[in-house]
């Protein structure tokens, strides 16, 4: 199941990571799930509540998630994933990312930002049914 998004949205989420460098950016992806993938319709930029360690941690306030979910409901969209950046670190999920991942069936997009410039962007689908069998699976990104 691939992640599908427009070039504009792809550029937008990568640019967000450059703007917040050297801190991590984070955001919510709204869209729809179909048999052929997760289709992103819009992005919601979120503030990183981890001001104590924003260079290597991110946390999205539940209130922002609820607000995004409400907005999505108006347009027939759901939360289909999240994105964040790894300043000066590879675009690979970390043990922290894995431990804090609970949105099964959703995409976790990570952009490596090196010296302020977005590099590789990868997506990982959280699979499994619960904390005991969850796993991150590499997910192809289709930029349409």
């Amino acid at each position: 199941m691939s992640l599908k998004l427009s070039q504009q949205l792809y550029d937008e989420l990568r640019a967000h990571g450059e703007e917040t460098y050297p801190h991590e950016c984070c955001g919510i992806m709204l869209g729809k799930t179909s048999e052929d993938g997760l289709h992103v319709a819009s992005l919601v930029r979120a503030g990183n509540t981890r001001t104590d360690s924003a260079h290597n941690r991110y946390h999205i306030a539940p209130q922002e998630l609820i607000k995004a979910q409400r907005e999505g409901r108006k347009t027939g969209h759901d939360i289909v994933g999240f994105y964040h950046s790894h300043p000066d670190h590879p675009a690979q999920w970390s043990p922290t990312d894995f431990a804090e991942a609970h949105w099964f069936g959703c995409s976790y997009v990570i952009t490596a930002v090196e010296k302020g410039k977005a590099q590789i962007t990868n997506s990982f689908l959280l699979t499994g049914t619960g904390e005991d069998d969850k796993a991150f699976t590499n997910q192809h990104i289709t930029v349409e």
């Binding site: 946390h59 590879p90 970390s94 609970h102």
Partner: peptide
């Protein structure tokens, strides 16, 4: 009532130890 799982994460504190 709204049920909303948390969302958080981040890079390793030293070097890369991604699995």
């Amino acid at each position: 009532l709204t049920i909303i799982p948390s969302i958080a994460g981040g890079t390793p504190s030293a070097g890369c130890c991604c699995r």
